[in-house]
Design a protein around this nucleic acid. Structure first.
Lengths: 118, 118
DNA sequence: CTCATAGGTAACTGCTAGGTTACCTGTTTA
DNA sequence: TAAACAGGTAACCTAGCAGTTACCTATGAG
């Protein structure tokens, strides 16, 4: 019954906090941004923000690189994709209609890509 | 920046605990099962299990109905589908390859369905 | 050089999640 | 109808999360 890697445990726990989910949104919109910039979007202190960021990084949801005196932050989608895989495999039977929607979205996306590359 | 209904907050928080995720798995595999049956799969007490179940129900991940002296428990996929929608829309740009895999899975599923109904 | 700036660590606090035991309510069934 | 059975509530304890202030380190600009 141990079908769930500990990795995802950390990711789920990290995603439990609204501020951390908003942080991921910020990183998606502004890849390579600094700790200070992320902090500026929240009410709490820089230290609190740093703790959230390190929770996210420990969970693999963030990758960071120190450049000079600032740290560049990047979103990493892998753990979320793993969570998604877990759901579609475990709860697959509940997804029929929803997956049909996805199919259309994927094909629309691919059509755009093909037109662009043509 | 308020693009996230409070509903999902509860769902994310509920999914943060491994035992609660396992409970959802159990409900998927045994719809309509009892509180006692769910409890029997864990080390902690029945009361702890009931608390987890009510967290899940408050988050909309479980629907329950009292039948006589037992309570029948059912998995509800709607909140998870909403989370999924949030991800595919917000982090869409990170999903290209992954979504292609989904497309194949969907088509395989539909092909099976069509064969069955033919 | 010097000093403002960006980040990092340490130590403390309040609150709540997650667990317990004890007890109560309602429903089968022997 | 008595007693076993399934579930529910109350009150409590504890560990850890999320926040704080204070202080330290290193780098870029003037």
């Amino acid at each position: 019954m141990r079908n769930e890697p500990d990795t995802l445990d950390a990711a789920f726990a990290a995603l439990a906090h609204p501020a951390r989910r908003r942080m991921l949104d910020l990183l998606v919109q502004a890849p390579g941004c600094s700790v200070k910039w992320v902090t500026s979007h929240f009410d709490f202190s820089r230290i609190a923000a740093m703790k959230h960021l390190s929770v996210l990084e420990d969970a693999g949801l963030i990758i960071s690189e120190k450049k000079g005196r600032t740290r560049e932050l990047y979103f990493n989608s892998v753990p979320i994709q793993q969570i998604y895989d877990r759901w579609t495999s475990q709860y697959g039977s509940f997804w029929a209609e929803r997956l049909a929607d996805v199919k259309e979205r994927v094909e629309a996306r691919q059509a755009k890509g093909e037109r662009k590359s043509a």
